[in-house]
Design a protein around this nucleic acid. Structure first.
Lengths: 248, 248
DNA sequence: GTTACAAAAGATATCAGATATAACATGTCA
DNA sequence: TGACATGTTATATCTGATATCTTTTGTAAC
């Protein structure tokens, strides 16, 4: 009965159907990362369609990161990386970015990052500390330009994420951090404040607490750090609304 | 000089180049959601390529959710929804799901959800409360089957997310929640425990705190709720490792 | 005037066949 | 063994034709 009335709104094209079939095979691990698919011609025979339909299905899957097409060689199943998985979300954040996003962003960070700092203090390894020190050293090098400083700022917070040694956390934090340079640029441009003056101090403080494995200390230090960020964001959002500036 | 040596590793195909061009137009808001693109034939003339190349570019963009193709009509710029943005991440979580993910997942929830419950208690509206009550009522209806109960469980936690009234939060929580039914099924199947016996009580308690706008109470209640979940997850992961069971 | 249906126009979906180009394997020669 | 030419295979792109869907237009009936 479902078949009779099932044709409204979900009529898949051939290529979409092929896409789905291959996607399912990957989901069910019938196709594993690194594995090579049959050639386009063979797939066309298997599915009983023309090469065009097959090609468009392969194109869609490779656009989504599930496949990798090597011209002259063949099509391979991709190992779906975490950075690739968060790209779609980063794009979404970029597209819907507006004045309110600036505040939502910092509030979201306040929700997570202090806890994250506490966790990092508990779980950090010696290798993590080495990376922190390298980052802080580069940060206090005043010959860096604004872009590099923004990059180092993001890197510091990313180091806290990785120091928590939970692979799911980078997945959700990466898109959030991808917005930071944009916000920072807006703050530097519109509020005369050179944010980079304060950040190194807070970073140093947070690092010290992580090094000492003082979870509560790291929590508080991060909270303070984000309080500054919240104040800046509030000022920025207010200023932008008053001056009718779009954040793009 | 860069042109001379720039050809290694980044030789884009025609269709990828077109994809990039259209994507940039969308990023720069030159193309806005709902807007109709020129027909494939016209685009082919514009870019100076055949319809094939254009079609594959459009296919890639529609696979990523940026465009929407209506057969017989035309191609439109999509309004990139948050649920669409988290799909890629959900797929990633599904593909790399293993025994360890069960623990990482609950630890991540412990990091965020108690704070989220506190925030929800502060920000919830009356409409949010209505939705909570509907969910709890359905939850205590014992005629529901396991799938529906799992769905209602996820819905409860999603309601907390939406009650926080920060649109960025659903974005990162949706992929996390998309894993819950799978974990719950494993728990029910492998540990004789019927988790649904306890969940309603905790949900009720959390809801009460949110209703009373008792942030700290909501925080604690959620912490307790997740402590149970952590205990179950630990038992499950241990059991699965001992019995060499794969989580698929 | 409005409704209902038929036809036309325009767009995407799919197919078929052909050429161009990249990657790989192989064989040859020094 | 190493360097180079060659052949094979696979993907990239083009061309042109047919099928199917959507929207619009035309038209006849009420």
């Amino acid at each position: 009965m479902e078949e009779l009335f099932g044709k409204i709104g979900k009529s898949l094209t051939l290529s979409q159907e092929i896409e789905l079939r291959i996607e399912d095979s990957i989901r069910q691990k019938k196709l594993e990362p690194g594995q090579k698919l049959p050639s386009e011609k063979e797939l066309g025979v298997i599915f009983g369609v023309s090469r065009t339909a097959v090609r468009e299905a392969l194109r869609m899957l490779s656009a989504r990161g599930l496949l990798h097409v090597r011209k002259g060689d063949g099509v391979y199943v991709n190992s779906f990386s975490s950075s690739l998985a968060s790209k779609s979300m980063s794009l979404y954040l970029e597209l819907q970015f507006d004045t309110d996003s600036i505040l939502h962003l910092v509030h979201l960070r306040q929700l997570i990052e202090p806890n994250l700092a506490r966790l990092a203090a508990q779980k950090r390894s010696e290798e993590d500390l080495v990376r922190f020190r390298l980052n802080l050293a580069a940060f206090s090098d005043r010959t860096q330009d604004a872009d590099q400083l923004a990059r180092l700022d993001v890197e510091f917070h990313t180091l806290i994420v990785t120091s928590s040694h939970n692979p799911l956390i980078p997945l959700i934090m990466d898109p959030i951090f991808s917005m930071l340079p944009r916000v920072k640029t807006l703050i530097v441009n519109h509020l005369q404040k050179t944010h980079s003056d304060n950040a190194p101090n807070y970073h140093q403080k947070i690092y010290d607490m992580i090094r000492l494995q003082d979870g509560e200390g790291a929590f508080s230090a991060m909270q303070e750090h984000l309080k500054i960020a919240e104040r800046d964001s509030l000022l920025l959002a207010q200023w932008m609304k008053e001056n009718q500036v779009s954040p793009n």
